[in-house]
Design a protein around this nucleic acid. Sequence first.
DNA 1: CAGTGGTCTAGACCACGGG
DNA 2: CCGTGGTCTAGACCACTGG
Lengths: 261, 261
Amino acid sequence: MQPRAAHTAPMPSIPAISPADLDQTDHRLPLYARLRDVLTRHIAGGAWPPGEALPAESALASAYGVSVGTMRKALQQLVDEGLLERRHGSGTFVRRAQFDKSLFRFFRHAGDTGSGIPASRILRREVTTAGEAPEAALGLPADAPVIRLQRLRFWGDEPFLAEDIVLPHDRFSAFLDIPVEELGPLLYPVYEQACGQVVARAEELLTVGAADAVVARLLRCRTGTPIVSIERTAFAHDGSALEWRRSRGRADGFTYRVEIR
Amino acid sequence: MQPRAAHTAPMPSIPAISPADLDQTDHRLPLYARLRDVLTRHIAGGAWPPGEALPAESALASAYGVSVGTMRKALQQLVDEGLLERRHGSGTFVRRAQFDKSLFRFFRHAGDTGSGIPASRILRREVTTAGEAPEAALGLPADAPVIRLQRLRFWGDEPFLAEDIVLPHDRFSAFLDIPVEELGPLLYPVYEQACGQVVARAEELLTVGAADAVVARLLRCRTGTPIVSIERTAFAHDGSALEWRRSRGRADGFTYRVEIR
DNA sequence: CAGTGGTCTAGACCACGGG
DNA sequence: CCGTGGTCTAGACCACTGG
């Protein structure tokens, strides 16, 4: 999609909505799906500030020259994907901090409040070729270039999670333009805004093992300490794999909550 | 598969559909939601054999005296819940074996195939009052009567999972009429067919701990062996809690897979 | 109160599947 | 070919929110 560089000017606050936007979408898709994609692009581009209302569905419908019912179907899909929130009587809103909720799960120690985002420090960022597990998960050939990230997360001063993150270099080359110091604790918004890559869903695989020497040093525990490992593969709307991530933390005090539907 | 209440007569193969069915639903709900509930009841009652088609949406709509669009919305909700499957050009079908897929997650040991349902043995069934964790999760008063089930699951001869299951006695009294020997490995279909309770979603909470004496005996391991515990609370469509369940198994060889949306 | 999203209708046309 | 579900339209009416 539209990979934007790190230094672009802020978006205009009044988004340019026009029926011509539809021409930039896949003509084979149904109209509501093309509307959904157009709106997704506007939302990802920051056209409407999170927390503020979009135009009314009737206004959007006439702006794009479609019926209200069709626009409703597009909007509803975005609600299902977690991008929008609709409030009866007041309007349609861009959801903020969606990543905390559905695509973000943490190790939690007994004492913490469970709210807030832990601090993180990036230990390394490099371009290499992926190992076996990541490349299989990302569907890449054995020698494809990838961006590899090593990160450590903290509650206060205590490291509790060691992360290895792997991104396909092709889609994420713009990610390398961003100084490591400017990366905040949340990466998915960066993927969206810098690389135009939107995470739609993810799979996680949990296992329990023992700390090896590297992990033990990072987490300040002994080799052999019980460790929980979470391998996550994140996917785009089209089903292609965007990111592979392995997070490891001490098993004591570990808590993982899932909603199943 | 579908264990039906022991003494009931077989269902009629031609379901009696009539607009009067709607009177038995909550009048405060929107029409499509009431249609959804009516259809759920028919499906749970076995009105349409799994794998065979329901009447066409237009036929259903006129049978209930509603418009096609409204009927479509009801049917779509059942698709989202996994009860139905629609195939363009051929029809609407009751899905079989839905419980394997979304509401069923297992401990898996390295060697197993990952397919199939493990055998299970029920060790105890009794009516008591719940402990602290279950009663809080079920939203019951401290001294409410509950049905408590202790169950052990096997891969072949090897026990790998010890389960404690708690059900509110009020809703599940019919469950006690079913002989323990007739209970198969899947309980949710029994809840549906014997007690009319349909599980719509669930929450699971994973933690890692050590085996106490009781669990160690059941799982044939030493006290203190690392153990994974999964606490699940299952909810009905109206949001009320139906079942609390804690499953514990050895941490080595443990695997848990989740899809996040 | 005016404006928003939520429900429901009635119908047209299209795309797919199987006989 | 016919019957199925999928898309899209145009509109009426209701229920909720906020000033």
